[in-house]
Structures are given as C-alpha cells and as structure tokens.
C-alpha cells in the first residue's frame, strides 16, 4: 500500500519545491518514495502536476485515475481538472486563487464558476483556503507553496511538525528560510 499525493497548479507557482519538501519529509520516516516532476515546456504558465508516492514499496512514479489519496491544488481550475485522479471520498486541499488560462484571456472560454461545489459533487472532500493571503502576510506571495504544505501537514499525523520543518529547511535556500518557516506555520495554524 502506498499513499498517493498529487500536487497540481500553474507553472511558476512552485509546485516542484512543494513536492520536494513532501518527498524529503517522508523519506526521513523510512518510506520508499517516488516524486515525479515535469520540467521544460509545461513550466511556462501551463497546467503542471507532480506526483508524490510513498509506502513500503513504490513502483510506478506516477498516479493513475482513481489512485490519489490527496490532491493539493494551487489554483481552483486545476483542482477541477485533476479531480478524477482522486479516490472516491479522497481529500482535496485547494488554494482559492484564480489564475485565468490563455483561452479565458483571449475570450475563447469562460472561467468556470462554482468550482468548490463541483468538486464536492464529484465525490471529493474539499478543504479550501486562501493561501495567497496567508503567504502575503508571511512576507511573500511566492510562499503559497509552503503555506499549502503547512495546511497539508495536518493530514499526515505520522510526520511530526518538527520533521516537516526540517524538510522545509533542507529544501529552501538559507536566505528564504525564515520566510518559508513563517509560511509553513501560517498554513499549519490556518
């Protein structure tokens, strides 16, 4: 058995760093871990997804439809896009931020309304938070990723808070350490 976490968002929002923090935190617990990322073209404002899987033995680096226990979404529309990867009754942690994709900007499509309700109708447990505001309050809107990891950490009681903090410290550059620890705390306490 493995725990399957998808981290989804918009290229540039810092999903890679979030997946590395999670990967490091669970590796320290002695789990087998795989973290799958996509670099290159899809980082330029496109829809991005990283997969984090951990357990006694993890084979596939990716997560299939219906296999995710958790989806951490950095943006509303992206949560909707990937919800079918979630197990029935699985948990979505979603940042309430809205970022218009190019088809919406050009007027070719509308940004869907009522996404949180739609997520619930599709069978997901939804935990919505304004991670952008929390990140700003912590000192930088770029820390949305760590705020969300702070919130998500509450769903994995096996990993103690100080173990999370150690993983954050190891994954971020020294000069941003204080900011990110503040962001983690903000997400954790929210």
């Amino acid at each position: 058995m493995s725990v399957n976490v998808m981290i989804v968002g918009v290229g540039g929002q810092g999903t890679l760093l979030a997946s590395r923090v999670l990967g490091n935190a669970v590796l320290k617990k002695g789990f087998d871990v795989k973290v799958s990322e996509v670099h290159g073209m899809s980082q330029r404002g496109g829809s991005v997804v990283t997969y984090v899987r951990f357990g006694d033995r993890v084979y596939s680096p990716i997560i299939g439809k219906g296999e995710a226990d958790y989806i951490i979404s950095f943006e509303l529309l992206e949560a909707a896009r990937y919800v079918s990867f979630l197990k029935p009754g699985g948990q979505i942690i979603v940042n309430s931020q809205r970022i218009d994709p190019m088809p919406v900007i050009t007027g070719a499509a509308e940004y869907p309304e009522g996404i949180v309700e739609k997520l619930k109708e599709s069978g997901a447990q939804v935990d919505e938070l304004d991670a952008l505001s929390l990140a700003r309050d912590a000192g930088s809107q770029k820390a949305v990723n760590i705020v969300l990891m702070g919130r998500f950490s509450r769903y994995l009681p096996d990993i103690a808070k100080d173990e999370w903090i150690r993983a954050v410290e190891e994954c971020v550059p020294e000069k941003f350490r204080e900011l990110n620890l503040k962001a983690f705390e903000a997400g954790f306490a929210s």
Binding site: G45, S47, I62, G66, E67, L77, E78, V83, P101, P103
Partner: peptide, 30 residues
C-alpha cells in the same frame, strides 16, 4: 501508465471521483 497497463491487460477499472467536463485548457504561454 499503470492505468493503461491495467486496462489493456483486462483488469477492472479503479473507481474514482467523477471527472468535471468542459473545463478550459491551460496551455503553456510566454
């Protein structure tokens, strides 16, 4: 993917949350 291998090898499909249809795409941009 494991999903494809399972499907092609005749395994039962994994139940999942219902997909939300008709969403605008998010292609990468400058």
């Amino acid at each position: 993917s494991q999903t494809l291998v399972a499907e092609k090898m005749g395994c039962e499909a994994t139940p999942s949350c219902k997909a939300i249809e008709g969403l605008p795409g998010r292609p990468p941009a400058l």
